[in-house]
Each structure stands twice: as C-alpha cells, then as structure tokens.
Design a protein around this nucleic acid. Sequence first.
DNA 1: GCCTAGGTCCCGTTG
DNA 2: CAACGGGGCCTAGGC
Lengths: 248, 248
Amino acid sequence: MGSCEVLSLPTSCEDMKRFVERSSRTSTVLIVGVAEIEYRGRAASYAAPAPRLVVLKPDGTLLVHENVKREPLNWQPPGAVHSYSCEEGFVIRSVRRSPREEVRIVLRGVELVAACRLASTELHVYGREEDLARLVVQNPHVVEPGAVVVGREIRTPFGKIDVLLRAPDGRLLVIEVKNEKATVASVAQLKRYVEYYRERGIDAVGVLVAPGISEEGRRLLMKEGFRLVDSSSFTSAKTRSLESYITR
Amino acid sequence: MGSCEVLSLPTSCEDMKRFVERSSRTSTVLIVGVAEIEYRGRAASYAAPAPRLVVLKPDGTLLVHENVKREPLNWQPPGAVHSYSCEEGFVIRSVRRSPREEVRIVLRGVELVAACRLASTELHVYGREEDLARLVVQNPHVVEPGAVVVGREIRTPFGKIDVLLRAPDGRLLVIEVKNEKATVASVAQLKRYVEYYRERGIDAVGVLVAPGISEEGRRLLMKEGFRLVDSSSFTSAKTRSLESYITR
DNA sequence: GCCTAGGTCCCGTTG
DNA sequence: CAACGGGGCCTAGGC
C-alpha cells in the first residue's frame, strides 16, 4: 500500500523543511544525520554533533536515538509542538509546556529522510498486576480460608489499596499485590495502608501477594507482622490463560 | 561520510536477511513494514499485523514503534540476541535471558530497510538530584545554621540516605533530596531512615529538601514532625551553573 | 490541572 | 548475580 515516502538526497534545506512540514502531520518522520542537540527543561543537556536518528511522530513525540540503549538520548513526549527552520542547518525546535521544556536539534549532514504512515493500535498486555489482583479477588481463599472480598482499588489518603478482604474472625486483610519480586518499598506502601486503618481503631493486617520478596523487604515484613502469600502457587493458572491469549 | 546504507526494494527475503545480518553488527537497522508481533516474558502480548517501525541496534536493543507515544509498542533492552529467518515473511526473533524474554516479529510488506552507523556517546544531564545533593553538602547551613556534614549516600538496611548532617545541638539531620515535587512516598522513604536511627537510640529528625511537596505528602510530613526545606531558595545558583554548562 | 501508582519500566551503582 | 533508588522517567486512572 506504499505508506513510506523517501526524500531523495541531496536536497536543499528548504525542500527538507517543506517535506517534513507536510508529512509530519500524518506520518512518522525518520531523519538520520549529524545532529547537535540542546535540551532545557526539568534538567538540561548538550550533545555535540554526531550521527543520530531523529524520529518525529504526528502526536508530537520526538525521539533521538544513538547506536546503543533502549532509551533515547533526548526526547519529547506526546503533545510537544515542533517547528522547523533553516539556519546553521536544518533546525528542529520542539516545545512542550507544563512543564516547559525545549529541545533544539541542528541537523547538518543529512543521510536519510523518510516519512511513513504507521499504525496506532491499543496493545493488550497480559500478565500484569491487574491480572494477579483479579485472581486474588476470584480466589480470596488462597490468602485466607473463608475470607470474603470487601473491595478492590480502595482509595485512602495514601493511595489505592489493591484488594481488601475480611477474614472470618472479622479482621481486615489489606492486600498489596506485586507482579514481580516485592521490595522494601512495597512493604512500606502496605504499612501505610494498614496504619491508616489501625489509627482509626480498625483491626487490620497486611498481606503481600507476590512471587517473592527481597531480604530487606522480608525483614520489614516480619517486623510489622505482615504475611507473604507466594503468588507462584497460582501462576500455573496465569500461564494457562496467557497461553490461550497468545495463541489468539 | 555516508554512514547510511539503504536496501533497494523490492527484494527477496534472503537478500534482506543477508543485508540485516551483515549490517546489524555495527549499524542501527531501520525497517518499516507490516509487522505482526508476539512477546512473551515477564508479561505477554500480541499485536496483529500493521505498519510499524522496527529498530535494531548493535547492542541488542530492539524497538517497535507506532505513530504515537514516546514508548515503543514492544521492545527488547540491550543484550538481547537477534536471529533472522525467512518463513511466513521476514522473521526477527529476539531473545534475552534473565529474565527469559522473547519477541518474535513477522514482517510482510516491507517498505524501507536502512542501516546507519550512529554515535554512542555519554550524555551529561545537568540538574538532577545528585546536583542538588551536592549543593546541600556544600551549603549545609541552608538546612540548619551551624550544621556540619556527616556523610553522603549513607547505606542503611532500608536504602541510601542522600545526606546526613549533625546539628549544633547534636541531633542527626537525615536529609532526603528530591529534584522534583516530593510525594507521600518520598516522606515514607525519609521516615524509614529516621526510624532506623531512632530505634538505635539516636536522636534524628527528617528533613526533606525539594522544590515542593504534594498535599498528602505534607500531611504525613507534619504528622512525623519532619521539616521541608524549599530548594527553590538555591535554584538560582543551580540555574547559573546550568547556564554556564549549556552554553558550552 | 494535581496526585497516585504501575511498568516487559530502564539504568547505574554497589555489595 | 541481586537489590535498591533515580529518572527530563512515561502512562493510565481518579478527582
């Protein structure tokens, strides 16, 4: 269907400017060339001229990539406004407000300019914390026999509680779910929620549902008298749903 | 210097395979085409065939971008190993161990294939927490007149303390530095450090150095009797150094 | 807009 | 290797 348009080089800066202005509204523009980059905003940085890849997306996203790393060297998130000019070279100025941030790129030796219409889909990712929380809600007995679900994503002044259960003896079970190994910060988070109830005279106990915990996390957990439920016990079910999902 | 090589299309899958295998050791490879993507690892996802940009870096990084968002739809961090084959289309298989993760991309309608040698530099970003902590170490009096520096990045079982000061009255001042507005989690972190000392019978007080704090953060801060030092008071100095830096 | 928390977070550093 | 915390984190969801 021919969704890419490649600008034939060499060309004048003005031609490049016209090409990019025209195509960047609907297409993702790729530019490879010697780029000098200044960034000022929440922090600041300067990168001396070197060959880099610049990606401009129609939603205002700006990416500057080098030969290494998953992360761009410099960037602008969606919503930034780009403007182009011909000065010391082809200049891209990308501005974002709130927070006010600006990236200025000077391109000199341009090697490749292409504009491609790409998709913008919603990717469903399976196997996140939300999925694990759902499993807990559907099987509260894995935390404690006879426990019943009180609520999900309960808001407190200190954040949302993943799952709230009530044990047969009346105590509240505050459940914090972690998809990956829990850390000391996970336990601290749980502690904030439990203290919120205890300060209101409600008997609550913290329960961490995670596939494991760091040594320091365990220490704090013990000190607070909280419990750890190993979620690997029901990862088989998780894997099964995952398989059915991935194979369409 | 001609650092980009563009594969002329259309071409056979075998030619593409050879081109990518050859160039991907030293160059960043850009492929635009209709891509179908499966990911399995810490989570799992499936993306139906659609036009997308695939970036392969020599360090093993894999990126799949669409028309929107700063974040790639799918990816593999540095260290992944890519292999290529011709099956239902041009197939890229990218495997990472620890954690074991795999991305499989099937490319059918290929629109653009280019390989470019890009730079790999070290970018110095100025204005991060480290810089603010340095300012505190150099000017402990902004926290408390007469305070002296005890240490920096002190390790406790609950994490590293940014700066530790001793007040003229002998009390320890545990300083937590935040480059941006502090949150409830920042205060909780500080609380862990202070409690560490108090449990050992050492009189300690928490001080948060930040350009501001969220309302809930402030509430917890008050409750704990900690102090907030507004770092905007010495951002002028920060800005000055930043200016001298950015203008080379 | 602020605030909270998750993320296939990535990334560097240290033990 | 694990663990911890920063990051210009980004992104989604509430309010």
